[in-house]
Design a binder for these strands. Sequence first.
RNA 1: GCGCCCGUAGCCGAGUGGAUAAGGCGUCAGCCUCCGAAGCUGAAGAUCGCUGGUUCGAUUCCAGCCGGGCGCGCCA
Length: 555
Amino acid sequence: MKQQIKKIVLDAAKKAFKNGVLPSDEIPEMEIEEPRHQSQGDYATNFAMVSASLQKMAPRKIADSLVSQIEIGGWVEKVEIAGPGFINFFLSKEAWHPVVDKILGQDKRYGASTIGKNEKVQVEFVSANPTGPLHVGHGRGAAVGDSVANILSFAGFDVQKEYYINDSGRQIRTLGTSVYLRLIQKTGKQIDFPDECYKGDYINDLADQILEQEGSSFSQKDEGEAISTCAKFAAKKILNSIKEDLSRFGVTFDQWFSEQSLYDTGRVQKAIDDFKSKDLIYEEDGALWFRTQDFGDEKNRVVVRNNGLTTYFASDIAYHMEKFERGFDKVIDVWGADHHGYIKRIDASVVASGRESQQFEVILVQLVNLLRGGKPFQMSTRAGEFVTLKDIVDEVGKDAARFMFLSRSYDSGLDFDLELAKQKNSDNPVYYVQYVHARITGILLKAKQEGGIQDIDFQKGKHLELLNTIEEIQLLKILNAFKENVEKSAKTRHPHVIFTYLMTLASAFHGYYNKHKVITDDRQLTLARLSLVLGVKKVIRNALTLLGVSAPERM
RNA sequence: GCGCCCGUAGCCGAGUGGAUAAGGCGUCAGCCUCCGAAGCUGAAGAUCGCUGGUUCGAUUCCAGCCGGGCGCGCCA
């Protein structure tokens, strides 16, 4: 619809130039927007205002010239000039009816876009170390990453979802040591438990499992060997439970990428050698430094320490080089906000290896404050006491949790209230939206059972010309705007655009429902309204699917 | 000190260059013999943190200041 309005404006501008009422045929960057108020029409353009300097004319005069070239007819009912020079378009009611046919025809693909042009995009998210369970923060990252991937895919990008497993020697060894020491403690020996080791209950559980599997003689084994056994065992167990927790949260990955594999295949060394040969890496104080400062970082960063061990940064450089070698046009990393200091240096490595800075994007997800009944939830990471993602899914459910995580921009911190997320009323937005879907299902069922309408899953709207109340036209407009919202959400990488859209659509539907009966004595009108309501149901489902939230038939 | 994010009604927040600044909670007043009241309608409530700048036009862009969060290791 917007495109059609734009075409009308452009055609009029051309004609105006040809007929000599406008001095220039230059077309500036202009907008077709939906005005806030009904009295300002269905669409408006700022063409006249942005053309003022080009045409060297007053905006309202330009608007006059343009409007004089527009033919009224078809769906365009009226064109007005208002305010500082807005050109407002008023469309006929019939203009909005075809959207129902579109929804019913395209069904699950309604709202899909091709703006992605099949560009290959990788979204990497969660990527938590396999040294402990996922917590709330990972949950928000998972919800954001998964939804962004869904939305990009729906918008025509070729998307791959990836989890990077930090499984290289160091922290896995710490994990192994932690489990081993707990195990030794269980055999009755008094030993100090080091600060750098992991302290959660799950470490104890893992120690128990190993004792059970290996027998008590295990503690007599050579320490190095025993730690290594513990490490492998624990990492595998933890990774499996991470996979399970994510899957229950509705998140799956196309690929699980191992950091260790970067060492095994020599890619880390290769990356270092490559940068060395380009003089991007130099030696100082016995360590190797990457000149990230040349690419805008505050200071240069160490890639190999003076003890010969590589830093995390070294494998991250190799990893990002590897990603692009796989052919991605764009690489998006979803990180917690506490890692923001890392962006510059990864970006530096991407640019240094010959890619464009714009090909690498980071979605920074701000932190989550967990509350219970409005009060901050006491958590101590040090002692290993925290609320895990699993706890949250168990307590409030996947749908409520995901909807809550996506309810506002990830640029802002999020208060996640466990009590609120559990409430089954309008305070909890997920029910507000899901209720629409369930309610419509109820209506359709009644129409089938009591109205004798057999084949209710219409492929095409019926008697749509009978949809003419303001509430119906309003609903049609919102349904029509779904695709634009998908595109906006994809372009900005902001899933909460879809959230806000859903709330708007749900609110419009509830209002309509309370004011008008769908099933009436008038059979044609009933069929028309059933068509509309069926369309609403499908759009609600499509939008919820993008957020990874289910659309229940009953609640 | 430096860097990133945020500052919109009592509270939570959408809008990020345009015309009268969404919505929700809370408060007040209403709506079920009727397709699901997990819903709806109405009322009151905002110097868009402050000060400058850019622009025909700034909540939106820029600078400075104030307030909050998070980072600033040859840790991971």
